[in-house]
Write a protein that binds this DNA or RNA. Structure first.
Length: 479
RNA sequence: GGCGCUAUCGUCUAACGGUUAGGACGGAGCCCUCUCAAGGCUUAAAUACGGGUUCGAUUCCCGUUAGCGCUACCA
């Protein structure tokens, strides 16, 4: 039975790199009929917060991929200690009574000294037990073999054959001096207990894997398969972090800007993975069908954001592709809450009428507020009167156009075809180009030069609004 | 410092010894057009460096350089 897990530690919001790890695990599970497990790795009591846990679950829910089983490490401490005890009993670990380093005094510990604290490995059972019983604090450390040097090996699903000499692996901690398990111990104990078959995680764990293999060996359980994912990095090449890069690394930032979950998932999948053909836009099912470790790259992938542009252009483009392909009813329905959240009020039927006019003009759902604002307000915000004057025209032309337009709009049937025919004919009569005719009207009605097609726009706006705005424009020109 | 990993256009990537090194985003230009978009077409842009192996290296090996990761009683 194939079982994979996503194991975030609740010490911050859901990071886009974490989201990608979740997605790849999920894809692998779904591709192979396996089980997806969410495990909250909350062994670091100091840094865990409920807010962070909530934010992670919120982010995962938005992705809407789901999972099959859920666990929390802090509820499994007894298991961790039991595994630690067993490892200790078999002689694979020892008590280290060396006091914790007092921060700052961190010296580079040259030579082999960094591997372990002198004297602690050789403590006799009696003395070790006596000091522990006397209440002297200790760290339980893994006893990495020192008399014989061995290469620890495994085959990574992405990186291939890996090996590291035990001479380069330090005696790492299993239990802290307060008795709580470290990440390495808790993670391995749970992976074994939950019968995880494949560990798919960030490449930052690649070298930790040797320690984990040592733990599995001491616990006398078979190690799972491993596959490490290349990291997501910032344009400067450094690992994405909240501290350095701000909210652009949070999944909720993408959600709030109006990314569609499918587009976001699609984008993340294309970072460090390729279907090996030219496909870019891929549905969940496409991704499931195409996913394999073969397609995963080995080098880190840059998420291309800047100070002025928080989102990778490719993510934005992909999102626009999803918006363009979306049925209008669905688009209108998704736009409605976005519009309301910005303080506008619009009824669903009007939103549905607006949707086709902006579908190809928005890349993110949030763009609706800037692209369709003039549909949503009664009074147009102020605009530069000079924009009413068409190319190669003057104030008089603009006035003439608007006055004629008012007359025509007052009597013409208010639909695309009639409006266009009437206004084009009028342009001919005035001896000006259609574009010169339409610009003053567009600016008067929309409040700006760049807007959706004029006639459809006016039809949605309605006769009263259009006439009122044209009157206002005429007044502006006359004053 | 030690150990590990990585290296193709600005970015994401394809090419698993033989290609004019392909695609996408972004950029530039043109077309379409009532503006803006969308769409179509065209274009600039890459194998980090140095050695091997080979008839032939983006591809295999070694070195250099650079980047990243681990080196905590964080995960």
């Amino acid at each position: 039975m194939l079982r994979v897990r996503f194991a975030p530690s609740p010490t911050g919001f859901l990071h886009i790199g974490s989201a990608r790890t979740f997605i790849f695990n999920w894809l692998y599970a779904r591709r192979n009929g396996g089980t997806m497990i969410l495990r909250i790795d909350d062994t670091d009591i100091e840094r865990n917060t409920q807010a962070s846990l909530d934010s992670i679950v919120e982010g995962l829910n938005w992705l809407d991929l789901g999972w099959d089983e859920q666990y929390r490490q802090s509820e499994r401490l007894a298991l961790h200690k039991q595994v630690a005890e067993a490892i200790f009993q078999k002689g694979w670990a020892y008590h280290d009574f060396t006091p914790a380093e007092t921060e700052e005094g961190e010296k580079p510990r040259l030579g082999a000294a960094w591997l372990f604290h002198a004297g602690m490995r050789e403590l006799s059972h009696e003395e070790s037990d006596r000091r522990a019983a006397a209440g002297e604090p200790f760290v339980l450390r893994y006893r990495v073999p020192r008399d014989i040097v061995e290469d620890v090996r495994f085959t990574d699903g992405v990186y291939g054959e890996q090996s590291k000499s035990t001479a380069d692996i330090e005696d790492f901690a299993l239990l802290r001096s307060d008795g709580t398990p470290t990440y390495h111990l808790a993670s391995c104990a749970d992976d074994a207990d939950l019968r995880i078959s494949h560990i798919i995680r960030g490449q930052d764990h690649l070298t930790n894997t040797f320690k984990h293999i040592l733990i599995f060996r001491a616990a006398e359980v078979a190690a799972p398969e491993f596959a490490h994912l290349p990291l997501l990095v910032a344009p400067d090449g450094t690992k994405l972090s909240k501290r350095r890069h701000g909210p652009v690394v949070s999944v909720t930032t993408y959600r709030d800007a109006g990314f569609l979950p499918d587009a976001f998932i699609n984008f993340l999948c294309l970072l460090g993975w390729s279907p090996k053909d030219d496909r870019e836009k891929m549905s969940r099912q496409d991704l499931i069908d195409a996913f394999s470790f073969e397609g995963i790259n080995k080098s880190n992938a840059v998420v291309n954001f800047t100070e002025t542009d928080p989102f990778d252009p490719k993510a934005v483009w992909l999102n626009s592709q999803y918006i363009h392909a979306m049925p209008l009813e669905e688009l209108a329905q998704k736009l409605l809450p976005v519009v309301c959240a910005s303080g506008f009020s619009v009824d669903p039927s009007k939103m549905l009428a607006i949707a086709p006019l902006i579908q190809e003009r928005i890349k993110l759902l949030g763009d609706v507020v800037t692209v369709a604002d003039f549909f949503l307000v009664d009074e147009l915000p102020g605009y530069d009167t000079a924009e009413l004057i068409p190319q190669k025209g003057d104030l008089a032309t603009a006035l003439k156009v608007l006055e004629r337009a008012r007359e025509i709009l007052a009597k013409t049937e208010f639909n695309h075809q009639s409006l266009e025919e009437a206004l084009r004919a009028e342009a001919g009569r005035l001896g000006i180009k259609a574009g010169q005719m339409f610009q003053p009207i567009r600016v008067a009605v929309c409040g700006r030069k760049n807007a959706p097609p004029l006639f459809e726009t006016m039809a949605v706006l309605g006769r009263d609004t259009c006439l009122r705005r044209i009157d206002q424009a005429i007044q502006k020109l006359q004053s």
